[in-house]
Nucleic acid binder design. Structure first.
Length: 150
DNA sequence: GCCAACGTTGGC
DNA sequence: GCCAACGTTGGC
């Protein structure tokens, strides 16, 4: 089983939205690296941190799990969607996503706190200039955060 | 709102 | 295949 960190802007979709929906399709990823993580490495049962980005208090706010393996993102075919991709076809979809299931809300572990711990210094999400919305989390990092910071 | 960093596009 | 221009991300 692998561990992940997945970003969402809370104005668009927050941990409270997931707590209400319980399961949601993680649509709208339009970055090849992030897509490849979902397509090639994510398996049902993998666990992920829910991270609020581009907001007043960026950081980890909850835990979720992969509920369904990657399948084509319907929004790529929808001309009215912001995520419409004219290059994608039903026969040859370009974008896929997993479904995620709510596990729990957690106390906020802020970006500043993540940066404050040397044990977490190598986290991909903390790398300079990182913009990837989905990044792997090492088991040791997951254990440190869940056991020491929550 | 600013802007550094990054990914993508497209002309050549 | 190069790379300048452009658009997006996301912390601050």
């Amino acid at each position: 089983m692998r561990y992940w960190l997945m970003k969402s802007e809370p104005d668009a979709y927050s941990i409270d939205d997931l707590a209400r929906d319980r399961v949601t399709p993680w649509t709208g990823v339009r970055n090849y690296q992030a897509r490849n993580f979902m397509r090639d490495q994510m398996r049902v049962g993998d666990q992920a941190f829910f991270y609020h980005s581009n907001c007043a208090e960026p950081g980890i706010v909850g835990i979720m799990e992969v509920a369904r393996a990657a399948y084509p993102d319907e929004t790529q075919f929808d001309k009215s969607s912001d995520y419409y991709d004219p290059a994608a076809t039903r026969d040859n979809p370009r974008w896929v996503h997993v479904d995620v299931r709510f596990v729990k809300k957690t106390p906020l572990v802020s970006l500043a706190e993540l940066r404050a711990h040397p044990e977490l210094a190598r986290m991909r999400v903390l790398a300079k200039g990182n913009r990837l919305s989905i990044t792997p989390v090492d088991p040791a990092e997951w254990k440190f955060i869940t056991e020491r910071l929550m």
